[in-house]
């Protein structure tokens, strides 16, 4: 069985929000984002002079809290590990919103139903990549199979960002610094 998940290349992410807006455009969100950019300070230079960005949405957890909390049995986890909401069954009760430890679910104000990242399930079924991956100008996001041993070396957490591990989120971080890919900004 596969477990698809996001791999974030911490050193490459610019925090440009291209993924956020591309996702919003693709999925017709009105005023909320399925994907959010987080900013954390660096592990070694904690004085704020150097910091990282990374993009996060639903983590398609191995043991999703939303799935078991839904009274309508509207949330399911597909064979490739993607957690999706059946909008026909969802009544918008918000139990999944409170159950999710990553704030990845919100209520769509237009449809009054729960809404979250479905890892562009329809696009993937057609053989396309997710919109966030396609739109990232620096290839900072990837979709990987976490059950593939070649991906076992990636980090499960990133310094400065406290995550609940109980649900076993399917997100990995590539924190390896490649000097050629480092970017510096100067205020002067």
């Amino acid at each position: 069985m596969k477990q698809l998940g996001f791999l974030v290349h911490i050193e490459q992410c610019l925090g440009c929000r291209s993924c956020e807006f591309a996702c919003k455009n693709e999925h017709g969100q009105n005023d909320s984002f399925r994907r959010k950019i987080h900013t954390v300070s660096d592990a070694f230079m904690k004085n704020g002079q150097r910091f990282h960005h990374f993009s996060m949405s639903c983590n398609h957890c191995s043991t999703p809290a939303c799935l078991s909390n839904c009274p309508e049995m509207a949330i399911k986890k597909k064979a490739n590990g993607i957690v999706i909401i059946d909008h026909l069954k969802c009544t918008g009760c918000s139990r999944c919103v409170t159950a999710c430890p990553f704030d990845a679910i919100s209520i769509n104000m237009i449809s009054k139903r729960a809404d979250k990242c479905d890892m562009c399930y329809d696009r993937q079924m057609q053989g396309d990549s997710t919109i966030c991956v396609s739109s990232c100008p620096v290839n900072a996001i990837e979709i990987i199979d976490l059950n593939d041993p070649v991906n076992a070396h990636y980090d499960k957490a990133v310094y400065g960002f406290d995550m609940k591990k109980m649900t076993n989120p399917s997100i990995r971080f590539d924190t390896q610094t490649e000097p050629s890919k480092l970017r510096f900004w100067s205020n002067s």
Binding site: M1, L67, K78
Partner: peptide, 10 residues
């Protein structure tokens, strides 16, 4: 795959 579907509401 049947058991996976059973445990993940599929």
């Amino acid at each position: 795959s049947f058991l996976y579907n059973l445990l993940y509401n599929n």
